[in-house]
């Protein structure tokens, strides 16, 4: 009984210590930003859209963007796009799938204001909120049923943020190339590196600095931080050049899933191995207790 009392005191001090240096200290060090559950409540609801009308209006989009699901290629490659606009415009196949409808519609009307990013490269692209809603309805109608975490990342984050653990650069995946067997020189890889360099320089001019690689950001920031940051970058980093991208719930989940895949790949292995190790030590402890009991027999 005395031992349990001592254990209780040790455990109590340990827990107080833990509380002070972890939850309490962190609550004091970082301001807490309450998200709004991707409601984008600063924007008014958009009217119901007509996909057929939207299709005609969306013809203008391919002046800058590709729509791969419709086999419409981009007019320029990523590097030339960056030289023209500062950044490569996204392929629009997923726009209707992972973006919030209301956000998307208002975004088409006034991209700079809605993204809260004053120098946003895209010009206003719809004449009225009804036109915008029609375009949104069109993109919803052509969006694929399923979307992978990686595709979502490419669409939403990947043209500014590399992810080297996911083999991703701002201009696409690092290609598999072969070096010259006699010299060891890999001209294709050097060419890719040069193109990436040109793109990154332009992107840094456009954004003010090169946006960070997000390989392991999931462990460097909390999930809550990332979700509220993506929902509204200004709430966590006032004055940041990062635009609000208007993801919906599915889009956000997929992005977080991708960041976990690259930044915390052992998550599944941990939950698979953990219980067995703990079980092993449970049995170990029970056996040790029985051994102790038999050894100590007669000592008191």
């Amino acid at each position: 009984m005395k031992e349990l009392k001592i254990l209780g005191i040790v455990a109590a001090f340990t827990l107080v210590l833990y509380w002070g240096v972890e939850p309490f200290a962190h609550s004091q060090m970082h301001k807490h930003v309450e998200g709004e559950g991707l409601k984008y409540s600063d924007l008014k609801p958009a009217p119901k859209g007509d996909a057929a009308r939207g299709e005609a209006l969306a013809a203008a989009c391919v002046g800058c963007h590709s729509i791969n699901v419709k086999n419409m290629p981009a007019p320029m490659d990523p590097v030339m796009s960056a030289q023209t606009y500062g950044v490569n415009p996204p392929d629009l196949s997923l726009a209707g799938k992972v973006m919030d409808e209301k956000f998307f519609a208002h975004f088409l009307l006034n991209p700079a204001e809605v993204t809260k990013s004053k120098h946003f490269a895209m010009p206003p692209s719809a004449g009225s909120l009804q036109d915008a809603a029609d375009i949104v309805a069109y993109f919803k109608s052509i969006a694929p049923k399923e979307v992978t975490p990686k595709e979502t990342y490419e669409f939403a984050c990947g043209r500014c943020h590399a992810n080297r653990y996911g083999n991703w650069t701002q201009i696409g995946e690092v290609p598999k190339t072969k070096s010259n067997i006699k010299t060891g020189v890999d001209l294709d890889a050097l060419e890719f590196k040069k193109n990436l360099g040109i793109y990154q320089n332009k992107l840094a001019d456009y954004m003010g600095k090169l946006p960070p690689d997000l390989s392991i950001i999931i462990r460097a920031r909390s999930e809550h931080f990332l979700e509220t940051l993506v929902e509204n970058p200004q709430s966590q980093l006032p004055g940041t050049a990062m635009p609000r991208v208007g993801l919906n719930k599915e889009g956000m989940e997929k992005v977080i899933e991708y960041l976990e895949e690259t930044g915390d790949p052992s998550k599944h292995a941990r939950s698979a191995v953990g219980p067995w190790v703990i079980l092993f030590f449970f049995i170990f402890t029970i056996l040790a207790y029985l051994w102790k009991k038999s050894i100590w027999k007669g000592h008191y």
């Binding site: 030590f281 170990f284 402890t285 040790a288 207790y289 051994w291 102790k292 050894i295 100590w296």
Partner: peptide, 9 residues
């Protein structure tokens, strides 16, 4: 024997 038990816990 007691040490080993404590180590188990």
């Amino acid at each position: 024997s007691k040490d080993v038990f404590v180590m188990g816990v």
